[in-house]
């Protein structure tokens, strides 16, 4: 496998570091987008269990030019100086795209990420039209009425479960109404800042996520979401995405799968193989003729 070090960014102190995996000679094509694999949480660019290394090599064998790199402050990349930018991670992903555009002539990109990597993928796609595909593994998940119903049905005559359901359903209804008023945006922004300071994952209001998805699918960007068992406190049946996002006009427009027998970081080898096969098939379907 042909791999080389990629170093890019504003200066040496803030340099971002990654590894490019090149397709075997004769298999690449200018039509194919380049692929970026993003950090999962604070795990370095090799990914949990070296998943991203293996995925990069699989995708390169399909003819894709792949870059997996560390965001500023993670892995071997430099620290980030205080920035006024709202989303420095998005800035880093765009820098990686700029780098591949200049060094390899790539014009279009597919972003792949687990958890926070998925979050950074969709955030970048929403603001950068060079992104033509996003794979989100355990993207933001939102409960639906059917989710609650299935949960309750599995609990039978458990009275506490029913009262808990009533409490959560009324709270959700209140939140839905509150989200329609202007102050909701400033509250969400404050929570987002708090979450970034505490290094916890900030889950935006569903409407915000839906708007980003709408923005990207409306311009023709392909999205592929896989929810694992990790999301089971919020996601519990295959059609839940369509049910939850129907009112945002997203039903049937995003490939979404539910893998309840797989954990968040695809720990076991069979789970990893399933992931590689699914992502490879999806990219091949859209970009390999």
């Amino acid at each position: 496998m042909n791999e080389r070090v990629a170093t890019f960014g504003p200066d040496e102190a803030e340099a971002l570091i990654g590894i490019e995996t090149l397709p075997p000679e004769g298999t690449g094509s200018a039509e194919r987008p380049a692929i970026l694999i993003l950090n999962a949480g604070v795990v370095l660019r090799v990914g949990p269990h070296r998943i991203t290394v293996r995925m990069a090599r699989r995708l390169a064998r399909e003819g894709f030019h792949v870059l997996r790199f560390d965001l500023a402050g993670l892995g071997d990349s430099g620290r980030r100086n205080i920035s006024s930018s709202e989303s420095p991670n998005v800035q880093d992903v765009r820098r990686a795209m700029d780098y591949l555009e200049q060094s390899a002539g790539a014009k279009r990109f597919v972003l792949i990420g687990i958890c926070s990597g998925a979050d950074n993928g969709i955030k970048t796609a929403a603001v950068d039209p060079r992104v033509v595909g996003v794979v989100m593994l355990d993207a933001y998940a939102y409960r639906t009425l059917k989710f609650y119903w299935l949960k309750l049905r599995s609990r039978g005559h458990d009275w506490d479960a029913w009262t808990g359901f009533a409490r959560r359903a009324s709270r959700a209804a209140v939140e839905r109404v509150r989200a329609r008023f202007p102050h909701a945006d400033s509250e969400a922004a404050a929570l987002r800042v708090q979450a970034s300071q505490l290094n916890v994952r900030y889950i935006p209001p569903k409407r915000e996520f839906a708007e980003k998805l709408r923005t990207v699918v409306d311009r023709g960007t392909r999205c592929y979401i896989i929810y694992t068992a990790n999301a089971s406190d919020k996601y519990s049946y295959p059609e839940q995405f369509d049910d939850g996002f129907r009112r945002f006009g997203l039903e049937g427009r995003i490939c979404c799968e539910y893998w309840p027998n797989v954990n968040h970081t695809f720990t076991e080898l069979a789970m990893q193989e399933r992931l590689f096969a699914a992502v490879t098939a999806w990219t091949r379907q859209h970009w390999v003729r």
Partner: peptide, 19 residues
């Protein structure tokens, strides 16, 4: 795996560990 994936069953032989 037992903690992270409810219903997980241990394989008969060990051919992998933590990914």
């Amino acid at each position: 795996m037992q903690a992270d994936l409810p219903g997980w069953k241990a394989p008969v032989s060990q051919t992998e560990a933590l990914g």
